[in-house]
Nucleic acid binder design. Structure first.
Length: 296
DNA sequence: ATATGGCCCTGGTTGC
DNA sequence: TGCAACCAGGGCCATA
């Protein structure tokens, strides 16, 4: 299931491959599920747009778009300059946005029109360069949204970014909360981007029991958690994310962070620190893995 | 306001 | 071996 590191990896990959390209034609499937507006309407809105940048916000991939006719091919000096300008702080200058949420099984792939079309392909964007951007999602938990910034605000993640949040703000998120720290980590309105894998892995690295009440954690414990979370996310990004089940990046390549998992999906296997068998419980409806000795 | 639980989906796994 | 029941799980919504 794609979380922050996987989404970051995909967003970077897509950015590198389609930045400056423009959407010649958009084909959307007929399922109502992955779309926040009628597929035909969304497809029409995307046609003719130029992709000036692609980035991650929480677990969302945001494609910044300029509407209207493509300038003069994806590699024109004008488009390259434009893309570079929008690469920095002014990226929200885009006139519209295409927001992709991968849900659990979603994939955003850069391929070519002649490549075999995988089952459960819900969107195909033919680009001026001859590439094709595809959204594939068997379980249809993903979402595709088009935002016209002339009419609505730019997309913002509900929660704070775990990669940049500082000590005081992090501690404030959990103050007075009466739910388990693991459940709090999964709450996207507090922190945006943490899912089941990195919740379990960061709690292990911070030596904290997932069931601990969030509001009862000490300042020291919270700071340990903040640093462990940042460290584990950054490490995972370096390794291209975790490939469990069917995650692949924009090129269809698997990540390698799953080799670094200490507890996630390692039920019964020895803890890397103390050899105690990893325990699995159900918490907030999610499989939760921890070492009963290291995480008190 | 905060917390909990059911629901959506399909593919992989389990069990008979 | 084959088929059906079961289950995972992110986010959203109703409910407590």
């Amino acid at each position: 299931m794609p979380e922050l590191p996987e989404v970051e990896t995909i967003a970077r990959g897509v950015h590198d491959r389609v930045r400056g390209d423009s959407i010649v034609e958009a084909w959307f499937g007929s399922h109502r599920e992955p779309f926040k507006m009628p597929p035909a309407q969304q497809a029409k809105a995307l046609q003719g747009c130029t992709i000036v940048a692609v980035h991650r916000t929480g677990k969302h991939i945001v494609c910044e778009l300029e509407s209207g006719k493509p300038l003069s091919g994806s590699n024109s000096p004008v488009n390259r300059r434009e893309a570079k300008r929008l690469d920095g702080k002014s990226r929200l200058d885009g006139q519209s946005q295409w927001i992709v949420h991968l849900g659990m099984t979603g994939r955003l792939l850069v391929t070519t029109p002649d490549a075999p079309v995988a089952a459960h392909t819900h969107a195909r964007l033919l680009l001026a360069s001859g590439k094709e951007l595809r959204f594939v999602d068997p379980r249809r938990f993903g979402r595709l949204e088009f935002r016209d910034l002339a009419r609505v605000d730019a997309f913002t993640a509900p929660g704070a970014d775990p990669l940049v949040i500082e000590t005081a703000e992090f501690a404030q998120l959990f103050r007075g909360r009466k739910l388990a720290i693991k459940a709090a980590l999964l709450n996207q309105t507090l922190l945006a981007g943490v899912g089941n894998i990195y919740a379990d892995e960061s709690l292990f690295r911070a030596a904290l029991r997932p069931t601990k009440i969030a509001g009862k954690l000490t300042k020291t414990e919270l700071e340990r958690l903040r640093l462990a979370l940042r460290q584990v996310l950054e490490h995972a990004i370096q390794l291209g994310g975790s490939s469990v089940s069917d995650y692949v990046d924009a090129d269809g390549i698997r990540g390698f962070f799953q080799l670094e998992h200490c507890v996630y999906l390692r039920t019964g296997q020895p803890c890397p620190t103390c050899q105690t068998p990893i325990r699995r419980i159900l918490l907030a409806g999610r499989g939760t893995h921890y070492c009963s000795k290291c995480q008190q």
